[in-house]
Nucleic acid binder design. Structure first.
Length: 638
RNA sequence: GGCUCCGUAGUUCAACUGGAUAGAAUGGCAGAUUUCGGCUCUGCUGGUUGGGGGUUCGAAUCCCUCCGGGGUCACCA
């Protein structure tokens, strides 16, 4: 328990006063776990006390060690290595710690904090299916929500669904033009994949049109006798001459190659397809019934598809927010802010937030034509959430680190508007995933589809388990469930064991490998413990014990289990499932070591046998509890 | 270019936020156990923590500088 550490801190301060008549602040006293290669359980670093003791580190440690051994009953021995004072704590104490763990319900979880936190994750666009990046996002958000719950907070899981905008219009246009009425039913495609297919189609056709248009411009330039004729020709192609950017002109003057001209953004904007998409966006905003119906229909396909993916992933949400419902509120808030002079307006009518008091640049909130930008909608969403849930004490946004700047700006704007919640917002920023052979780029088609990946991993888990597993007595449905439990468990664990802040390399082959620091390795340990307990029960062994001789391996395990509550606290503080994952791996390694070297069922002393069973059972419970915090299930057999 | 994050065994990651001889996994090599489930365990191998300077009892961690790599600086989402 932490009480031992607190007790030591107290006694160190007391000892320093007693020995040297010196006052030392609590913060100066550092207690840490003794490193493996030294003798002892807890270590005090004495360097900070040298000023007070006016003696060398060894002598100071020696004085303090003697004093504490004398005054703390649980301390049975101490030793000094340089400036480090190592204490050995009595076996009785550790045994007592274990007995408390064994009798605690939900061991490791903290009492209700009185706080409610909203955790946002996933937040997809509705124009294409989820990919590997979304997997990290979903697993991370879901796990952090669990960890915050374990820290005693109430948690509301949510997402913002980006259901409107030019991206979905692109899919809609392509479907209208090329879809021939295709539906998920008619094609057998999952809805999100179907809509994604037309998004890809749009971009493919768009590229063609860009090339065609560029070629026309080049031809026009070559045939035109003078500039006036050329511009007239451009206008016939749909360009308003005034809008043709300066660089297209200079490129035309200097370099007639397609490569040079094609880069100009005005070319893309003037293709037929982009004009159609822009028009559709305006029709959508105007509430055009045909467009709205198509929009609803295709979004619904996507939602149905996402639901299947969420189910496979094992994630869920308590409350959904849709951009189409919040962006107008965002506009209202900006209008209000303008009236209150929190924002300012430029001559062209656009509205801006002045952020010069921070290091950030000013940010546009409404365009000259009054339409909103992404930021506007995010302001609306944040305010709406606090209106809907006035009891909220904080909000966590699980969003990739490429949007760090965006969230800095968002939080600054909310603070400027004096929303009191602006100080309790947290951007849970995570690094990108790269593949062993390079980056995922949607343009180069190297994006890993989430559904495909999950299916592949489960299939591999199936092969692996059929070869080596213990499947006797399981029916077909139970087996299938086990395969997905192992496959997805491995995948989740692989993505969560790395510090979220860091980028990571995802190696599909390695995530299938079931050795080492992996989910299945931990799952296996759990299954083996359950098997052991079942066998013990069938042999009629009791788990009741009274007096036991605890060995060093058992003591190490208890020390690790003792850390679980503070590990949960740390993981919550840092929003980091990785801390839970690495802790669990350490615990499993320690247990496997014990399991391999110490007899359990063959132990002759029945007291020791019972204790070892009880210890194993509780290790199993901590493993299960910790894995569930990651969203990973553990089987009783595998 | 400005701002920002990062660089640790061959590889993938740790290091209690300034503490001891920088640890695991994987790979390679050598072994154990034939059972309480071999998806196990034990050794060995492998490092100038990108380079250089500084701060102090003590630096992978903090500061400066250089090298290398992300991200971001939109009237895109």
């Amino acid at each position: 328990m932490r009480t031992m550490e607190n007790k030591l801190i107290e006694k160190v301060i007391e000892g320093l006063t007693h020995l040297y008549d010196a006052k030392v602040d609590v913060k100066q006293v550092q207690i840490q776990k003794t490193r493996k290669d030294f003798e002892g359980d807890l270590t005090v670093v004495v360097f900070p006390f040298l000023r007070a003791s006016k003696k060398g580190p060894e002598q100071t440690a020696e004085d303090l060690g003697a004093y504490i051994k004398e005054n703390v009953a649980e301390v049975v021995a101490y030793n000094v290595v340089k400036g480090f004072l190592n204490f050995s704590i009595s076996k009785v104490y550790w045994l007592d710690v274990f007995n408390q763990i064994a009798t605690t319900e939900n061991y490791g979880f903290h009492a209700f904090s009185g706080k409610t936190i909203m955790v946002e994750y996933c937040s997809p666009n509705t124009n294409k299916p989820l990919h590997l990046g979304h997997l990290r996002n979903n697993f991370l958000g879901y796990s952090v929500a669990n960890i915050l719950k374990a820290n005693g907070h109430k948690v509301i899981k949510t997402q913002i669904i980006n259901d409107r905008g030019i991206h979905i219009c692109k899919s809609m246009i392509a479907w209208q033009k090329f879809g021939e009425g295709e539906t998920p039913e008619s094609s057998g495609l999952k809805g999100d994949h179907l809509v994604g297919k037309y998004y890809v189609r749009f971009n493919k056709e768009l590229k063609k049109q860009v090339v065609e248009l560029t070629e026309k411009i080049v031809a026009l330039k070559q045939s035109a006798e003078n500039r006036g004729v050329f511009y007239e020709g451009l206008e016939n192609l749909g360009f308003s001459a005034a809008n043709v950017k300066l660089d297209i002109k200079t490129a035309l003057d200097n370099d007639l190659s397609i490569d040079a001209i094609i880069k100009d953004p005005s070319i893309t904007l003037n293709t037929e397809l982009m004009r159609n998409a822009q028009k559709m966006l305006l029709d959508w905003e105007a509430g055009d019934e045909g467009v709205r119906n198509l929009w609803k229909k295709m979004n619904q396909w996507v939602y149905d598809g996402f639901d299947v993916s969420f189910k496979t992933m094992g994630v869920d949400f308590d409350e959904l927010y849709y951009e189409s419902n919040t962006y107008l509120l965002g506009k209202d808030i900006v209008a209000e802010g303008l009236a209150k002079k929190e924002f300012y307006q430029k001559e062209d009518g656009s509205v801006w937030a002045d952020l010069s008091h921070t290091k950030l640049d000013d940010k546009i909130l409404l365009r000259g034509d009054g339409t909103s930008v992404y930021m506007t909608q995010d302001i609306g969403t944040a305010v709406k959430r606090y209106n809907d849930y006035p009891q909220l004490n904080g909000m966590v946004y699980t969003v990739g680190n490429e949007q760090e700047h965006h969230f800095k700006v968002l939080f600054s704007i909310l603070k400027k508007c004096e929303y009191k919640f602006s100080d309790e917002l947290h951007h849970l920023s995570y690094g990108m995933i790269e593949l062993p052979d390079g980056k995922m780029k949607s343009r180069e088609g190297t994006v890993v589809d989430a559904d495909d990946l999950m299916e592949m991993i489960v299939a591999d888990a199936k092969t692996m388990t059929q070869e080596r597993g213990h499947l006797d007595g399981m029916n077909e449905a139970e087996r299938e469930e086990l395969y997905s439990l192992i496959g997805l468990g491995g995948l989740k664990y692989f993505l969560l064991k790395v510090d979220p802040k860091k980028g990571m390399i995802f190696n599909p082959a390695e995530s299938i490998d079931l050795n080492g620091n992996t989910g299945p390795f931990i799952q296996y340990a759990h299954a083996r413990i359950q098997s052991l307990l079942a066998k013990a029960e069938s042999l009629g062994f009791s788990k009741q014990y009274d007096v036991v001789e605890m060995n060093a391996k058992e003591q190490e395990i208890i020390k690790l289990m003792n850390d679980y509550p503070s590990v949960i606290k740390e993981a919550g503080k840092l929003y980091s499932p990785a801390i839970i994952a690495n802790y669990t791996f350490d615990l499993v390694k320690e247990f496997n070591n014990f399991y391999q070297t110490v007899d359990i069922l063959r132990e002759e002393n029945k007291q020791n046998l019972a204790f070892r069973l009880c210890l194993s059972e509780n290790v199993g419970e901590v493993i299960k509890s910790a894995m569930l915090l990651l969203g990973v299930n553990v089987p009783d057999k595998m």
